[in-house]
Design a protein around this nucleic acid. Structure first.
Lengths: 339, 339
DNA sequence: GTCCACTCTGTAAGCGCATTCATGGGCTGT
DNA sequence: ACAGCCCATGAATGCGCTTACAGAGTGGAC
């Protein structure tokens, strides 16, 4: 910048103005500066600007590394949930003039989040359970943080969640009322998965609504993978007594896994047994039969996150907001609906 | 930082050391500082650090916004190519201690890339044709840039591409030699799509290899969407003379589109006519029949990009490198292979 | 011709941190 | 007990930019 100023025979302040508020500089001067800048290949330092202006123009997103968890064994088979969120955030951020900094949670100890993201952005979003609460607590005192999905752990943060409970409740009701299934089994996720919990709760509510017996716990649990879906299904079918008329899974991957087991056993879906999932991953529409599920608006999660951040940046005194994003029951063949 | 220093009764230099080189500070001091930092919720400013240390610890990625182009009409049906690249880069970047800044190309004029990304990162990758060459030219004088996919436009940049030509050539040879198809039709992309061009060229080479007539241009073109795939297929079938024994598409989306048309017309795939795609998107394995295609290693594109950047950062004098990533022919039913 | 009101540009003071260099204190060895 | 060393720390400088603030020029109204 100093070089540009010198060669254009102006002060660095003017160079700065040319880029920040071009209107404040006479046209002749501006063009002269621009020309020199181009010639010299001037690239303004984001760091310096950030330092001087106390804002970086960047928003952040922290998400878990799915490497060895939900990713689904079948390589790249699904658009990962977080991919959609990233995309949604990127779009929205761009609209607002921000860039997006992303970082999967790193094993690198406490320093990680703070050093990697918090110091470089004007605000950021965190996928629930990605970052230790304590650390969030600290960081959120310095800059806006919005929590994505999962329950609201810290009530002074903005927070966006999807209507897990309501979605599962609707889906269950559909099974009961529209398809007359009453012998239902629910396959949950790990006990510490809030989403899976909420979905099970929705299942409970629907049972209650219909006057069916309300179970205390899922009939089986799995780790949200296809393999666990298969295992859970085997387990359910091995139970004494009549087989369930429908199995509701806490997520799609498990439901898809179940399909294979059922087919293998000669059980027809949905005639002999209905199957449902949750999440709305693309895979569900491509299986045979296509799986009835509940679609999560992952992209909108990201967009809303940016909106909240931008709003809070504009007015830090706003009251923390908690948004509940609606979900959509997607009826397909696996529950008995035509396609 | 000044506050922390004051309350911990040390100088700011010591606070800095506690975070940068903890070993250089006596343990007692270090813990005292850490305690105060935690108490105060100290978050080091990335900008200031970047300024002082002349490096940001961030790598960047510029990619086109697929909003209204390749995205595929079927909402979220595919893992977008760039999603995989993002993921690959993020992983690799994290391994090397970098964070990732992403920005889809923005309509915001020339200022955009430079202001948004270049100034904030230590180096970045660009998906081919995302950024005007001239702008890249300028920026690449200041920091490492690696070009992803597409032909090598600037020979002083590091560059990674996938073996489009070779892949299509192999695939075509497979069709000819292993399935005995000789009446082939190729559906290309837009004329200014280097990837599609390269693939067509591979097709030409294979024809030549086999002593078949070598076409000058694709038999049809489309915009890489399913809709265009359908249209192209209709067009081909409407031509006078015998129908082709195989249609090779420049990408998967078009091939998938074709499947529907063929089924509708009562043509069996692959018995009456073989179909192949290119890219290896997940969708291809889920159609009926599954589509033979060529898988692109998108994730590895991203990882390699980071590797190149890191290497160049370590040694700016290295000679520019051009990496060609191998692709894999994935044989499935649509070409006549068993599944 | 004078004075005022603008417009455009320059001056200078930081922004929060890393880092070099100097300094002081403790320790070793004698 | 003293010289010599090293380790831990502090003081000071600068990274490249933004942004009041002030100053210089320009034009118009009187």
């Amino acid at each position: 910048m100093y070089d540009v100023a010198e060669q254009a025979d102006v002060s660095i302040a003017t160079v700065s103005r040319v880029f920040r508020k071009p209107d404040a500089v006479r046209e002749a001067t501006r063009e002269r500066v621009m020309a020199v800048a181009r010639k010299l290949g001037y690239v303004p330092s984001g760091s310096a600007r950030g330092l001087a202006s106390r804002s970086t123009g960047v928003l952040g997103l922290c998400f878990p590394d799915y490497d060895d968890s939900t990713a689904g064994v079948d390589d790249g088979e699904i658009t990962l949930y977080s991919d959609e969120i990233i995309r949604g955030m990127e779009r929205a951020a761009r609209r607002h003039g921000y860039a997006l900094l992303i970082a999967a949670s790193l094993a690198g100890g406490t320093e990680s989040l703070v050093a990697k993201v918090a110091g470089r952005v004007d605000g950021f979003a965190v996928l629930a359970r990605t970052v230790p609460t304590e650390e969030l607590e600290i960081v959120s005192r310095r800059l806006p943080v919005v929590m994505l999905a999962g329950p609201r752990e810290m009530d002074h943060l903005d927070h966006i969640e999807v209507a897990n409970t309501d979605g599962q409740r609707q889906l269950t009701r559909h099974l009961i009322e529209d398809h007359g299934r009453t012998r239902l089994a629910f396959v949950g996720g790990a006990e510490d998965s809030p989403d899976a919990q909420a979905r099970f709760h929705g299942f409970q509510l629907a049972c209650q609504d219909a006057g069916l017996p309300v179970p205390d716990a899922p009939d089986a649990r799995g780790d949200l993978t296809q393999a666990d879906g298969r295992a859970a299904t085997e387990a359910l079918l091995a139970r004494p007594g009549p087989a369930p008329e429908a199995i509701l899974f806490a997520n799609d991957q498990m439901a898809v896994g179940a399909l294979r087991v059922l087919e293998h056993r000669g059980l027809r879906v949905p005639d002999d047994i209905a199957v449902t999932g949750f999440d709305g991953i693309p895979l569900t529409r491509l299986t045979r039969p296509p799986v009835t599920t509940v679609r999560q608006p992952a992209g909108r999660l990201g967009e809303n996150a940016v909106d909240l951040l931008v709003q809070r940046l504009a007015d830090p005194t706003r009251a923390p907001e908690s948004v509940m994003l609606p979900v959509t029951v997607v009826r397909r063949e696996s529950c008995g609906c035509g396609d």
